[in-house]
Amino acid sequence: MAVTSDTSAPPARTGAPGRVPPPRTSPRRVAVRGVALLAVPAVVVLVVFFVVPALRLLWLSVTSPEPGLGNYAALVTDDVAVTVVLRTLGMAAMVTVVCLLVAYPYAYLMSLVSGRWRGLLLAVVLIPFWTSLMARTFAWVVLLQDNGIVNRALDTVGLGPVRLLGTTAGVTLAMAQVMLPFMVLPVYTTLRGIDRRLVDAALSLGARPVVAFLRVYLPLSFPGVAAGATLVMVLSLGFYVTPSLVGSPQQSMLAQFIAVQVNQLVNFGGAGALAVALLVVTLVLVGGVQLLTRTKGSRRATGAGVAGGALV
């Protein structure tokens, strides 16, 4: 392998010979041809276990039970399907917002404290992440029962009982808890990379603390927020386990709806169309966020968002 390849050209000149700004190395740009071999196992796995089934699904959606776009027409005209898609989008958005509201202050705290405390806060986020999803979901079922701990606590302060199990609120709560690490980690990675002196600079220039936060800190944390929000949103859109255990069939989300199509109605074509719709929505979302970060990103060189995404 040619180690001394010409990709290691000197960095672009940046005007006067000064301290060279931190190198903006994109993994794509440094890629050397020989190194591409490293991607082969991943590509094989992806093609065999994702691309082929996805294409098969697409194929089914336009051929079964009969050739044509009937499945898609049904999807658009079927009130139930439309409702489920809209509900899924709404729930995913809700979960994303809840996660962001909880994760941002938490990640901010993590970026402020030092050493031991940071490790502790990180552990608090990660320990649930490492425990089984089923275990956590069943725990939520127990917690959210009509006479569960949550309701008894609400009862004590005179707010309950409230029906939580099988409701959208209950599902949102449980999903937000499951998704939290996916928001905390990228946001934290970005916040940790923000130079605290920038806030000092803003203060010295006459900005009140709130203004310094809104005009300087918040915009710089955007890549992490975008990465976290995309992850949580996309994962929530296709989430199956938690909604089906905590929620109810009447309030089903897209993944449950697909499962019903396959398992009970044996409607592979319809399920395929739904899955394709889910994929399209996801791609549109990811693409949209990419575009948004790109326009912002072109104005600032940061790997924080990418790093945040890569972390999880």
Binding site: D195, L198, D200, A202, S204, P209, R300
Partner: peptide, 16 residues
Amino acid sequence: YRRNLGMVFQNYALFP
């Protein structure tokens, strides 16, 4: 922010 003093930092602290 009330002192009205200019400040220059070692690492420039320009808003990126």
